[in-house]
């Protein structure tokens, strides 16, 4: 898939290269935070709850992005916030893609009663206002324990980040499912599927080895779009107090900055820092998404000329 055409196009579009660089930077920060936490290393970033100055200190040489209402470094909170936000967005994307792609592909391929049930589930989920659905899931899942002892796995406490991931993931699969289903139905009409059938391949093999690879473009693009969407969803949930409370995320930062805004001239730096942190990663992912859309559209066109 990532043949030389991809790199050649990338070199021509500097913004996309810059976007990739930004995304990489965020990933490095997140991995760094996880490593220091796992190995209990003594680094500044993870000590986001350390008081480094007076309350609501303006940005200065000492604290580049200023301090919050308890005198904690906004810079550290912003960097640490990447961990929560990106972890949630990533796992929620994975959950919702896994559910959406498998349901959509199976429904589109097998049709019949199973398809009807999936369509029904789709319209059930689409009938509930998204914000209510996701907050209800988050609210209900908060501080729950999933009991897997019957599977011999013990029980997993669902709290903070995990609850948010599951809530967002389990509510966001609908649009992916619909797109994948429609595309599988379209692909099924093509001769290569009939050819595979005539060679006696099993349905499962045709679906997994022949049809799904043709959906790679769609799946990658949907993944990117969902990822952005979930960063926003995490911000909103954290802000509403349904997210990870014990750690800073960009949403909780906005919430704490909001209190500062009512005091004259206080807190806007925390607000802007959190916004900028969200903006940079989302903008980069959006640019990458646009580039991928063009790339796959071009590939499709080239393929259709080849036939």
């Amino acid at each position: 898939m990532l043949r030389d055409g991809f790199l050649r196009r990338l070199r021509r579009q500097k913004i996309v290269a810059a976007s990739l660089f930004v995304i990489l930077f965020y990933l490095v920060v997140v991995l760094f935070i996880y490593t220091t936490e796992i190995f209990h290393l003594n680094t500044g970033i993870v000590k986001w709850d350390q008081v480094v100055g007076a309350e609501y200190e303006r940005p200065s040489a000492k604290n580049i992005l200023g301090t919050d209402y308890l005198g904690r470094s906004v810079l550290r909170k912003t960097l640490y916030g990447a961990k929560v936000s990106l972890t949630v967005a990533l796992f929620a994307s994975i959950i919702s893609m896994a559910v959406g792609v498998s349901l959509g592909a199976a429904a589109g391929f097998f049709r019949g009663a199973f398809d009807y049930i999936v369509l029904w589930l789709n319209s059930v989920f689409a009938s509930i206002p998204y914000i209510l659905l996701v907050t209800a899931f988050a609210l209900v899942l908060k501080d729950k324990t999933i009991n897997l002892s019957s599977l011999g796995l013990g029980s997993i406490p669902v709290e903070g980040i995990a609850a948010v991931c599951i809530a967002i993931g389990l509510t966001g699969w609908v649009s992916t499912c619909r797109l994948v289903r429609a595309e599988v139905i379209r692909q099924k009409q093509f001769d290569y599927v009939r050819a595979a059938k005539s060679r006696g391949f099993s349905n499962l093999r045709i679906l997994l080895r022949h049809i799904l690879p043709n959906l790679s473009g769609l799946i990658i693009i949907t993944f990117v779009i969902r990822f952005v969407y979930y960063i926003f969803a995490e911000v909103m949930l954290s802000f509403l107090g349904l997210g990870a409370k014990s750690q800073p995320s960009w949403g909780t930062m906005m919430d704490s900055a909001r209190l500062g805004l009512t005091i004259p001239e206080a807190g806007w730096w925390e607000m802007l820092s959190a916004t900028a942190a969200v903006f940079l990663i989302v903008f980069s992912v959006n640019c990458l998404g646009d580039f991928l859309k063009d790339f796959f559209a071009h590939r499709l066109r080239a393929d259709s000329y080849e036939q």
Binding site: V228, V235, M236, M254, A257, M271, T275, V278, F283
Partner: peptide, 9 residues
């Protein structure tokens, strides 16, 4: 790329 929350605040 800007969150709705930031627009509002």
């Amino acid at each position: 790329s800007i969150p709705f929350l930031s627009f509002i605040l």
